[in-house]
């Protein structure tokens, strides 16, 4: 969406900006269906294997999970800041807050990687044929839980990476884009970024906080 720069279809930039925002909302709605579907799978499974899931979720690292939540929420403040500055025409400030957003995003990914490696060591990562040496109750459904955990978190991570790449691209083209389109892009990517954060805010309690 932010890809389309000054489409011939619109007569005024204002109308185009509104159209961009609108399109972004539709896209977010579409994405919501994607995660919604997988969350639905998770809940259906959790209803039938509640105990196993609860026990398995104890094995996830609560500290790291919480830390990541904090990091991402902070990035959710940096992002609107960028939009604020951009609309105020304070471009360098906007630039810096975008950079901050990207860094926080990268931080999140770093922590997540650390978490994954830990889980592989503990043998609770039933993926890529890694040995699954979980000793808790109802091993089978615990494995199911970890399967879902990796599916959901990696999908979320992919979306985050996507966001980071787009922002990075924007920063590359920053000087070349005129101000109107800069503003439009910041606005559009901002919506997307918030969405990705909100998804995490859902995933965190769902995965980490089963009766804790």
């Amino acid at each position: 969406m932010s890809a389309s720069n000054e489409s011939v279809a619109f007569d005024t930039p204002a109308r185009e900006r509104r159209a961009d925002a609108f399109a972004m909302w539709i896209f977010v709605g579409s994405e919501a269906m994607l995660f919604g579907a997988i969350l639905l799978v998770f809940f259906m499974a959790r209803i039938s294997y509640g105990a196993a899931f609860a026990a398995a979720s104890q094995r996830l690292s609560l500290p790291l999970g919480t830390l990541n939540t904090v990091v991402l929420i902070t990035s959710s403040f940096a992002m609107p800041l960028a939009h604020l500055y951009a609309s105020a025409g304070r471009w360098r400030a906007a630039l810096w807050s975008l950079a901050a957003t990207v860094l926080l995003g990268l931080g999140f990914l770093g922590i997540k990687t650390a978490e994954y490696t830990m889980e592989f060591r503990e043998g609770i990562a039933p993926v890529l044929g890694a040995p699954f040496t979980y000793d808790g109750p109802d091993r089978v459904h615990a494995e199911f839980f970890f399967g879902l955990y990796f599916a959901m978190t990696s999908l979320h991570a992919l979306h985050l990476i996507g966001g980071i790449v787009v922002i990075a691209g924007m920063l590359m083209l920053w000087t070349r884009a005129n101000e109107a389109s800069r503003l439009r892009r910041v606005h559009a990517i901002g919506l997307y970024w918030h969405f990705v954060d909100i998804v995490w805010v859902f995933l965190f309690p769902v995965l980490y906080l089963i009766n804790r």
Partner: peptide, 20 residues
């Protein structure tokens, strides 16, 4: 039989092994 730990009969220890 396949995963006894899932539902434990009241008053028993979950010692039954899985025959999965």
């Amino acid at each position: 039989i396949l995963n006894p730990k899932k539902e434990i009969a009241a008053g028993y220890e979950p010692v039954m092994p899985s025959f999965d």
